[in-house]
Amino acid sequence: MASILKGTSILVLAATLAAPCLALAESAYPAGPIRLLVGYTPGGASDIVTRTVAAALGKQLGQSVVVENKPGAASNIASAFVASSKPDGYTLLLGTIAMSINPSLYKNLTFDPVKGFAPISQVASSPFMLVATRQSGITSVPDLIDKARKAQPSLTYASAGIGSGANLFMEYFRSKAGIPLVHVPYKGTVPAVTDMLGGRVPLTFDNIMTNLPLVKEGKFVALAVSTKTPAAIAPDVPPLSQFVPGFEATAWFGLFAPAGTPRAVIDKLNAATVKAMQDPQARDALDKMGAQAVTSTPAAFTTFYKAEIDKWGAVVKAADIKPE
């Protein structure tokens, strides 16, 4: 009995001594550079948002926030890496709307999309823009709906691939509007746009960062944006909900840490993120892209993230979308 009590006392003593050390480590955080992973290649919208956030967050934390691109598998490679990383606040993920789509598309994920992460804060959002080619002759959403109901064969739309945002947003619209549309998936945005410009596909519903420049060049016709209100960067383009009641969707970006990251670290990162996204330089960079800074508490972001998984899971199921 004495030996058991002695062993227990040693464990209690060890825990007592460890607690102040852990608290000290958390209060000193961050004591070195932070890795911020993004699941896409350099140069795209997600990468640009990530680098904007990294620069602003680094200023607030007083440490370098180093962006690391780890593309592949619709961002699942980066997500899996972060979910399995040490939960110390030094490896973070810039997640996108793909994180809420992938759980319903991929049945054999190597990480738990909810339990594997500690959400920190949303950082930005961006509307999608529904566009048609000039060659199509489609000039408005009512015109599109009318033509879609009468077209033989059915109208087609392009996307960057099965399960991409462009695919899901258009399927959500198609379902809400009750119209037939045929999906033509490509391996990326560039080949999709190339075929649209060649007159082979008339429609797409992609991020405003991708579509607005082509609208300004006169190559695409802007029909609507996905958000409840017009986008500041394109105030004359109406919300889709004006024609299809109940439609609302947005592309979002947010910061995640591995599950198990100490609460003190999450709170410090959240506070720094809120201040970072108020930085005029960061806000201006996002505004020019057609995005806007958005922040939230860890609890609110967790609730939002779970709701997005449910929302897009229902769209995937209704459209019977299968991964490539």
Rank of each mutant, 00 (worst) to 15 (best):
F243Y: 14
P142V: 09
T189Y: 08
G43R: 04
A98Y: 08
D320F: 07
S85G: 06
L144W: 06
R134E: 14
N102I: 10
A15Y: 04
L214K: 07
V215L: 15
K107D: 11
I34L: 14
V184D: 11
I97R: 06
G43D: 03
K311W: 00
A271M: 01
D195A: 10
G313S: 01
V244S: 09
I101E: 09
S27P: 01
A257K: 03
E171D: 13
F128T: 12
A55H: 15
S85T: 11
A55K: 15
L93P: 02
W252M: 02
G199T: 09
D310H: 06
A118V: 09
E68H: 10
P33M: 00
T229R: 12
D310E: 13
A224R: 00
I208Y: 10
V315M: 00
N76D: 13
S159L: 04
L57G: 02
M209R: 06
T204P: 03
T52N: 00
V67M: 07
F253G: 01
S9T: 15
I266G: 09
M277L: 15
P213L: 10
L37C: 01
L5A: 12
A28V: 03
K219S: 08
A232H: 04
I266N: 01
A319P: 10
A249F: 04
P103N: 01
F111E: 12
V65C: 15
S84N: 15
L212P: 13
S121N: 08
V49M: 02
T8H: 08
V193S: 08
T302D: 15
N76T: 15
S9L: 15
P239M: 08
T91Q: 04
A19R: 12
Y106R: 12
S159V: 00
M289N: 06
L203T: 13
G260S: 11
S64V: 00
G58D: 11
I10M: 14
P191M: 02
A15N: 04
R283W: 05
K216A: 03
A14Y: 01
A224P: 03
G62H: 07
A291T: 10
I4W: 08
V193C: 04
V82E: 05
S126R: 07
P258K: 03
P42R: 01
T302K: 14
A272D: 04
T297S: 15
D195H: 10
M196Y: 05
K59S: 09
G161T: 08
Y40I: 00
T156Q: 14
K216G: 14
A231N: 09
